[in-house]
Amino acid sequence: MVRVEARGVDRRVRDVALLRAVALDAPPGSTVGLLGPNGSGKSTLLRVLAGLDRPDAGRVLLDGVDRAERPRREIARRVAVVTQHTPADADMTVGEVLRLGRIPHRALLAPAGADDERRVADALDGAGLSGWERRRWTSLSGGERQRVAIARALVQEPEVLLLDEPTNHLDIRHRFALLADLARAPVTVVAALHDLDLAGQYCDRIVLLAGGRVEAAGTPADVLTAETIARVFGVAAEVIAAPAGRVRILLRAPDQGDSGFWSIRGDQ
């Protein structure tokens, strides 16, 4: 497992500052949630961590070594990325999609071997997708594609997993199952999330972004306070303490009074 760090990361596009002096520390094996309103910089930070965008200032470190100094093949083996939007028109089967995750572990142009096939089968089973290998990608719903994309990332056997809104298209049961699986997996996870309650339950650390800056960082109990949620998201919250620095979050719509309906949704 790998420690992932961002130190003083800036990112600008056409003179617009998307990230400003952002710092992040994901210890080996931890699950770190990136939270913040739309436009706060969550996806941009993930792209910088993944090497898809270069920072204009600052550094991204993997076990203390600048990401840019590590060989590309090493990065391909050790870091897996699942973006928010997956292509809808890929003419592939589910099995073929998962086999893409084994490419970094094979010689150039070498076909999939018995070990690759075993790992694909194990990933399908672990994701609750047994029997899906011959299903066409174009026949899947958005949530089904998301589950396959995450299984493809895991079959890569990464040490770091970067996820942009991994629960976005999933139903409630699969949201809980996914985050529970990630929390148990022997991998360092950094995930952009919208659901404050799920982040409070399953993340070891939270990095809360607002306006491209880090508003707060620490355990869920440190970061997800009623005062901070009100200031950053503009909603009232009831925060319930849970074991090991975790919290449960109940949110109330801004136009409701004290007797208003409380929701566990954190979409902003």
Rank of each mutant, 00 (worst) to 15 (best):
R54F: 08
D195Y: 06
R99T: 07
A57S: 13
A217G: 03
G245M: 12
H85Q: 15
D197K: 11
R118G: 09
I75S: 06
L109A: 15
L100Q: 05
A226Y: 04
E74L: 07
V4I: 09
L108P: 09
G143D: 11
G8A: 11
P220T: 04
P71E: 15
L163K: 05
R135T: 10
N38R: 06
H85M: 12
H174P: 08
L161M: 06
V155D: 00
R7K: 08
L19S: 02
D15W: 10
Q146F: 04
K42Q: 03
A21E: 12
A236H: 15
G113L: 06
L178H: 12
G51W: 04
V148C: 00
E159C: 03
H174V: 09
V94L: 13
L198M: 14
E238Q: 14
M1G: 07
D181N: 08
A80S: 14
D222S: 08
L108G: 04
A149P: 04
V223G: 01
V82L: 06
R67D: 02
E117L: 14
E74S: 13
E133C: 02
E157K: 13
S263L: 12
R78H: 13
A88W: 11
E69Q: 15
A180N: 12
L46G: 00
E69G: 15
I103L: 11
R20H: 13
A23Y: 03
G51N: 12
D258I: 08
D53H: 08
V65I: 15
R252M: 08
L62C: 10
R20L: 08
R134S: 04
T93N: 04
R106N: 09
G41E: 02
D181I: 01
P87A: 05
A23I: 00
V22N: 02
L18T: 00
R145A: 04
P27V: 00
R78S: 07
V60M: 08
G128E: 15
A50Y: 01
L52A: 08
P254W: 15
L179W: 08
G212F: 00
D125P: 06
G58S: 12
V32N: 00
E157H: 06
T86E: 15
Q256Y: 14
D195P: 01
I264E: 09
L49D: 00
D53W: 07
L45C: 06
E165G: 07
V13F: 15
A244T: 13
V32A: 03
L19V: 01
G29Q: 02
M1Q: 10
A191R: 00
V32R: 00
D181E: 14
A76H: 00
A110C: 05
D267L: 12
V189T: 12
R106W: 06
L251I: 12
G234Y: 11
A226Q: 05
G131M: 13
E133L: 05
A153E: 02
T31N: 05
T188E: 01
D267N: 07
L224C: 09
S130T: 15
A110K: 04
A210Y: 06
G131P: 07
G128L: 14
D125V: 10
I229P: 08
D164H: 01
A217V: 00
S30R: 01
G33D: 09
R152S: 02
G51L: 01
Q146N: 04
H169D: 15
L18Q: 03
L182E: 06
